[in-house]
Structures are given as C-alpha cells and as structure tokens.
Design a protein around this nucleic acid. Structure first.
Lengths: 180, 180
DNA sequence: GTCTATATGTGGATAGAC
DNA sequence: GTCTATCCACATATAGAC
C-alpha cells in the first residue's frame, strides 16, 4: 500500500486527467491505456473493469483529501482562507482527482456521489471550526465551489481569472468571516 | 421560429434532461429519441447529426437567457439578488439548458464553451450595473456559480440545501454589495 | 505483468419504405 | 415527417501467448 506499483499510479493519473479534460465519454479504457503507456490488456490486469478503475480514482481522492485536511487544520491563515486560496490552484493533484470524481458523479455514479458528499462535509466541518456563523461558513463553501466550477471549464475565464485578484477575493472572505 | 415544431422542442428537452441527469455518454441519439417518443430516424430528420442536436440546445439556451436578462434588469430586488436567488431554482428550464450546455462544454465542445462565456459575461455585466466594486461583483458571481455547481450534483446536499436558508444567503450577498 | 487477438454489444449515421 | 433496416466504427471484456 505504501509503495503501490508505478503502473497503477500512472493509470489512475491518466484516467483522472482524461476525465477532467475530455469528459467521461472520451476517457475510455483504450485511451487511458495509451496515455498511461500500457496496452488495454495491461491496464485490465491492474483494474479488472472500468468500475474498478473508477473506484481506484475515488480511493486516490480520499487519500489526498486526508492529507489536505491536516494542512487545512494547521494552516496559519485559518481553514477558510486556506480553503478558498487552494480552490484556485487548478492543476494540482487534489484538483485533478476532485474534478475527475466530480465528472463520474455527474453521470450518476453512486460511489462518486457519496465520496464527494463526504469530502464536502469534511471541508465544511473544518471551516466551521473557524467560522461560527453557519451561513457565513456555507457561503464561503459556495465561493470555493464556484471556483471549482470555473476551474472545471476550459477557456480563458476559468484558468487564472483570479490569479492576481486572489487577494481581493480573500478580502471578501474576510468580510464574511468577521461580519455578524 | 415563433412556432417551432413540437417534435423538435420535445427532442431538445429530452436531450438536455439526459445530459443533466445522466451525463454526455448516456445521452445517446437512441436514448434521446426514446425519451422524446420518436424513433432514431425520426430524430435524425430534425437534427441531421449529434452536433446539430448540441447546437440546438445552445440556441435554446441563448433564447431563454435573453428573456432572463430582461427580467434581471428590471427586477425590483436588483440584479445581484435576482441572480443568486434564481441560481437556486433547480429544475427550471433555464437551469436545465444551462447545465446541459455545461456538460457539453466539459467535454471540450467549443461552441458550448463560447456560449457559456457569453452567458457568464452577460450576467456579470448586469450585476456590475448594480454592484460597482468589481471584486464584490465577481464574488457574487462565484456564489451563484457555486450554487450551480451544487445543483449539478445528484444527492441530498444539492437539491434544496438552500431551500429555507436562502434568506440568509441573500443577507450575505447584501453584505458583499454594501461593504468595502 | 504485459501483450495480441477476438467475441460481443452498442452508438452514429444512411437508405429507403410508408 | 416518421418509421425500419442496415453499415461501419468503436468500447468493454475475455482468452491465452509470451
């Protein structure tokens, strides 16, 4: 577990990337295998079916979210600012895995839906340790999720819109935190 | 144009619904035809290809957004509140068409990406007529888009999370509008 | 562990009857 | 305008060689 085969990781990564960039339909076993540099049969040795592949991505998401929650809890700037700031970090491994599972969830894939609900709750719980007003906390979550929505889009207004405006956005968050 | 064939509307509606609920892969011509109550050949008479079907959904989105912008401009509560409030109206025709085009955009479909950029700009422009601080305006857009993100998810925390908390959310928006 | 070959199903699109 | 029948391409998954 601590040293998983390299091939498995490369396959997960390729599948997640294709889900994000091209959608669920384009993320076929064949295309994933090609991107990971293995054959179809080679992929199916590690993941016996497409469903197994999806579950592999979910597992990888949970692992990295667990790390992120620890960083979030101990962030000097506080969980809320940490959450919003890191929501703009498109292209990170967490970002890619999250969006990949989101794509699966959007097809009605139950395990993915449950995974995202769990992740959402975990983040909200962390924010509420800092932001006592539950409505302010929910609004901050919405801002972060709005950023994810934008990062899930190709095109100019998704990647980097908030690059240099991030400070201003964080000011808005500060106002929500401190306000009544 | 003012009286389009009933079949065409039913087909557009069926395709949009399937895109939202089941994703782009499940929204096949065959499944769309079945849901619309016509045969595959019957559908292909009205829309010669899947691409034509996608363009039909985009056209329908632009038509309904145009209506919405007029309502938004003349809303007594102001564009910002109107935008956030109506972002929670999952299941409306605008909502379904918007999410349908979003699904297409997420596959890299260029016409859909361009359509969403146009819609996004239109809404932001409206909000900025009321909210002069551009960062507050952007933050309000993020909240609305966070709501869309949530509404794009199946499961309990998407549909109706903000049903009775909407007033509190609108209070947060009010603070963003007036503050700074 | 990784490959090729193949069986089976399904999607997109055309042709042509009604 | 709507249908059925059909062709072709491709996706999933299995079998079995190396």
């Amino acid at each position: 577990m601590s040293r998983p085969p390299i091939a498995k990781e490369k396959i997960i990564d390729a599948y997640a990337s294709m889900l994000c960039d091209d959608g669920e339909r384009a993320a076929t076993i064949e295309a994933t295998a090609a991107k990971a540099g293995v054959s179809k049969g080679g992929l199916l040795y590690h993941f016996a079916s497409k469903e197994a592949l999806a579950l592999g991505v979910i597992e990888a998401l949970h692992a990295i979210v667990k790390q992120d929650l620890e960083l979030m809890a101990s962030a000097p700037e506080g969980p809320a600012r940490y959450f919003v700031r890191t929501s703009t970090l498109v292209g990170s491994e967490l970002d890619r895995l999250f969006l990949a599972v989101l794509r699966l969830a959007q097809t009605g894939h139950e395990p993915s839906i449950e995974a995202l609900e769990l992740v959402h709750s975990s983040w909200l719980d962390q924010i509420r340790t800092e932001v006592k007003d539950q409505y302010a906390a929910q609004t901050i979550m919405l801002i972060g999720e709005g950023l994810y929505y934008q990062s899930s889009m190709p095109g100019p207004w998704s990647r980097g819109t908030f690059g240099k405006d991030l400070d201003h956005l964080l000011d808005q968050v500060e106002r929500l935190k401190n306000g009544s």
